[in-house]
Amino acid sequence: MHIHEIYTVHSTYREDMKIRGYTFGQGEKSACIVGPLRGNEIQQMYVCSQLIRALKELEANSCICTGKQIQVIPVVNSYSINVGRRFYGVDNVDLNRAFPGNSYGEQDRRIVHALMEDIGSYVYGIQFASFYMDGEFMPHVRMMETGYQNTSLANLFGLPYVVVHKPAPIDTGTLNYNWQAANTAAFSLFTRTNWEIDERSASQGVAAVLRFLKRMGIIRYDSHSGYISHVLYEQDLSDVHTGRAGIFRGLARPGDDVRYGRPLAEIIDPQEGVVRETIIAPTDGIVFFAHTKALINQGDIVYRLVHRLHE
């Protein structure tokens, strides 16, 4: 294992923020794994730290294939993590909207530019990312429909789902988009949570990356074959909205099988304790995303469902 510094931020009253790359093996820049660009991506950092632990051991056992190099950047935005904020700096910048960056502009642009300089030439790029809505997901690989996306490669992670989504204008500032523009095959991996550690899906995330590296001939490793991924397009998910605001009492969790017409959640009047609204499943399906916070606003998405495929 070799550690190098990719970028350092100097501050008047804080210690330097050092972005470090941990590399394993030598040779072709084969795969790069990137952790939190946002301060709430704690689970993502945990997964990367566990990957470093596993790769260190594999390297010690000479299980990194000759001529292959792997890099893990376990955390980018440690300044935000340490103060419990999602975005970077006093002007609250989302680093995952600042790509490709440049070397002469605001600090956030310089950070992502330095990052791209370091990671832009890898063959495979894997980011442990987070979604803009807070809640829990089924573990999945997310890809942008750029015309070059390769869902069969994404299947090799062996996670239950591969989700393909159409990039919106705002997505052009993401790492994933810019990795693809630099000819890296880019994948965003989502495990269950962000702020909290979910051990089970974290080890699923670690196993998925190791399985992928093995299947690509980058490491030697005995792995379980994982799931045969179900590929779905984001527009095919059924969104379930609330009609009222209040206290959210979820009755279904990610992975649950739900039936048309059955209750999915209740919205409780926060002052009188009665049920204001019962949210009903609009279709037979599997819960892909679930809102988890105690409070909910009117009109928000509480569940995203995958339609059940009838054989």
């Binding site: 009222r244 605001a245 209040g246 926060p270 002052q271 909910i296 606003n297 009117q298």
Partner: peptide, 10 residues
Amino acid sequence: SLELPVGEHL
């Protein structure tokens, strides 16, 4: 207008 959790609308 959208309802907020406790006795208020945005």
